[in-house]
Amino acid sequence: MTDKFISIEAIARRYPGADGKETTVFENLWLSMNRGEFGCVIGHSGCGKTTVLNILAGLDQPSEGAVIVDGQAIEGTSLDRAVIFQSHALLPWRTVLGNVAYAVTSKWRNWDRAKVKAHAQTFIDLVGLTGSEHKRPSELSGGMKQRVGIARALSITPKIMLMDEPFSALDALTRGTLQDEVRRICLETGQTAFMITHDVDEAIYLADKIFLMTNGPGAVLAEIVENPLPKDRGRIDLHRHPLYYALRNHIVDFLVSRSKTFTATVTDHDPRNVPIVRPGKPELVVAAEAGNSIQASWPGLARPSTSS
């Protein structure tokens, strides 16, 4: 466990309820990621995904537990952890260049204007917004705004990029192109990334590890799905890969039924050692687990195998 780049250790988040009782969104949550990995969290609304991300970003504090990044417990926000917000969160009174430059000057306070501008321009070019530097956010389409958000996050060269459903407000076509961009940039730069999504295909395309969370309150991290698809997968022929449907069905099954019943049916769940699942690997044995009934209704498909 020492080589973990990000290690979330036994965090809990509770809110005071209306009747004096506390509502526990989740507790004793353990999660870790290696350097350069792309992790995606999938779960239904209210399971505390965003809270996990906010805690990781430092925008929220856990009620218990700690988060360790690169060997250090985090305290508050940091320029090491950049956030791409769902609503892009650009400052509307600044231009594209101004928004990116704001992040750059925040990180390197003693840089002169020309250096800041050149640095910001590099990242604007990287996300394909060359020529729109002097536009204001209101003049940009939703996809372009989110590109600026990505450029802003990348411009501070963070150790981790945190994304909270960054593409959920975009149309399918734009979402696809932006997923390509993010994947390309993450692969090129070896960026560690942590993303929240509702979109199963997005997770399959982007993530190395997919974290499945059960429904809240009292949500737990049920399993970690390791993406069996090759690193050089493309968005266009992703669905032709022999393991694609096994993986996709496993996640969809989880979201449709197991996310509701998981905490009730799996009594020996150890939150410190969450089972790692590699769907579709034929050499591994199928674990006897709740879900066999679901399998029966989907004949002819490879069932996921489980190993801890």
């Binding site: 970003a57 430092g58 925008l59 926000t77 940091s78 956030v83 925040s106």
Partner: peptide, 8 residues
């Protein structure tokens, strides 16, 4: 939050 994450 943008300002906070940028340690402004």
């Amino acid at each position: 939050n943008v300002a906070r994450t940028l340690e402004v």
